[in-house]
Design a protein around this nucleic acid. Structure first.
Lengths: 330, 330
DNA sequence: TTGAAAGCGCTAACAA
DNA sequence: TTGTTAGCGCTTTCAA
């Protein structure tokens, strides 16, 4: 009932451990004949090398860490789920596995524990903040890592959607449709993703020589009440279109407008810088930017594996997007 | 820059490896004095034992596997997220970590890979099906495991919400409010959770000698269109109250009713056997059963750790619930 | 109370 | 092309 070891196989086949090891790894010279003999035996007996022993011998765990935010308002977002799907799939193909770390706000102890315990060969950081403590930790510890999102630190290997370009394009399309008075409702500006989205939005206005009305820009909204207040203000200030920085904000905005019986797009237009199922349930289909988080996760994982193998990788990979024009901005 | 090993410490302190090991683990006799000397040194130099070496020596990975459904309609549900939160937290406290496996439908290869590779000491299965292939796999391989959900196999260690009792109680309350013609709209009856919810519902009616009208029971609905058709039928057949088997179904039902301008609770009542943020965004607050998935995850993890340590644990733990009576059943 | 030594299962440098 | 051997860092048996 005990599992086969490389030693058992060696004895069984009358060769040495080294030979078996070589047949498996493909490293070092070995005759075609013996290799096949070993491989056959392995397949027939479903032998799997012990990853602990293998890991101990060459200082690898064959695990990567997925570090995602742990506060439940954020954890619930489909985005991180979808990323994870791509990550796990890519890892599995390479016979790697994914370990979870939850990051609570700016706290680094959870991630530090995993790194200090040497439980993983690398880390995928699920989102980035301005002056990110966990990025600092990772750099300090010398752990290989990539981030999903952008970083101001050019050393950091980043995989991100091209938020700047996407937000600029969406905004520009709406300008071309004749809108001028945009209200932007956004969340925490410590999040790099919000910073880049804001940048794209601003640059579209700039390119068309439109001065954004600062009375229509509402940032750093955390709670639903704040968002709803922003909606009230936007309407009071005669906004033509409300741009929502993400899907959760947009869901709240649309909900509030419906409760107040404000017609979309009749009385006000609405667009979102991020689309998700959260917006499926609303009456009027919402114009939004669409990304592919699963692809993001897959790319991040693939890149991290390259890094752990010492290969050169691009510092920044920007994935594409789609603009979904719907009824909410007609 | 290299990490300390137990050998380094031994030399540094002029004792043997064994002594250091004993000081750390607390196993075996050792004088108070030397133990303190070792412990102090460890704390000061932030020594952490290499988990791979430790693992190799005593056949442990210090990792547990969280096996959750991988199809994105389900992955997106907050439920599994919340479970994971509880699991990760409990694991971390015990210096364990969580490895992810995605289960696609009835497919067992993902989980089999992780088990055959011996990457984890035990598995938490996130949901159960009737004749669950993954349960069979786990039993077959002899891997320690617990399930979140119920199983018809009494050998399986189960941690579940008390769906039967909860659904019975909610249904009974509505009966007492005077409702008789219940329409039940449910999902896949291969899922144990749906089976148990149905059971609770039926037993409430039985207890009150109400014969459920089979024309009002719509099970195995997968797609939104099927659910919407069920709603049409429920109304056509003069249902007084629609019972939704889960939050996603309920969101679809409420949405459909709104589009059709059917008033809740005026023209029809609605209740859900599971509450989640999905139901926050609807106009009328929905009567629903509330559970604590995080607690479920924490309990499952704690129980699995007990199992891996060879302790005796209860075969079935049922967690409590809350009945939230809201405007939708007034 | 402490230590020497073997062993967990694999890799890799070196020798043959 | 193949084998011998030492070593990865820890646990544990046995002896002192």
């Amino acid at each position: 009932m005990k599992e086969y070891t490389i030693d058992d196989i060696a004895k069984e086949l009358g060769v040495s451990k080294t030979t078996v090891s070589r047949a498996i790894s493909g490293k070092g010279r070995i005759s075609e004949a013996t290799r096949n003999r070993v491989r056959e035996f392995i397949n027939e007996n479903k032998y799997r090398p012990n990853p602990l022993a293998k890991g101990l011998a060459n200082s690898k765990t064959y695990n990567l860490c997925w570090a995602m935010p742990g506060d439940s308002t954020i954890t619930d977002l489909p985005f991180f789920q979808r990323c994870l799907l791509g990550i796990v799939e890519t890892a599995a193909v390479n016979d790697y596995d994914i370990l979870i770390s939850m990051i609570y706000e700016e706290n680094t102890i959870q991630l530090a524990r995993i790194i200090d315990n040497r439980k993983v060969d690398g880390v995928i950081l699920g989102r980035t903040l301005k002056d990110d403590k966990n990025v600092a930790l990772l750099k300090d510890k010398g752990t290989p890592f990539v981030v999903i999102g952008s970083s101001e630190d050019a050393d950091v290997i980043q995989i991100d959607n091209d938020h700047i370009k996407a937000c600029r394009e969406l905004t520009d399309i709406l300008i071309m449709k004749g809108m001028r008075r945009f209200s932007l409702i956004g969340g925490d500006m410590n999040h790099m993703v919000n910073i880049t989205r804001y940048e794209g939005f601003k640059s579209a206005l700039q390119d068309r020589n439109i001065n954004p009305d600062q009375n229509l820009i509402y940032l750093n909204n955390e709670k639903d009440e704040e968002i709803e207040r922003a909606v009230d203000n936007a309407i009071m200030n005669n906004a033509e279109c409300i741009m929502c920085m993400d899907d959760r904000i947009c869901a709240t905005v649309v909900n509030k407008l419906r409760r107040d019986s404000v017609m979309i797009p009749g009385e006000i237009r609405v667009a979102s810088f991020y689309n998700s199922r959260l917006l499926d349930e609303v009456r009027t289909p919402i114009t939004a930017l669409q990304y592919d988080p699963k692809e993001l996760g897959a790319t991040a994982c693939r890149t991290l594996l390259e890094v752990t193998e010492g290969h050169e990788v691009p510092k920044k990979q920007l994935l594409s997007y789609e603009v979904l024009l719907k009824g909410s901005t007609r």
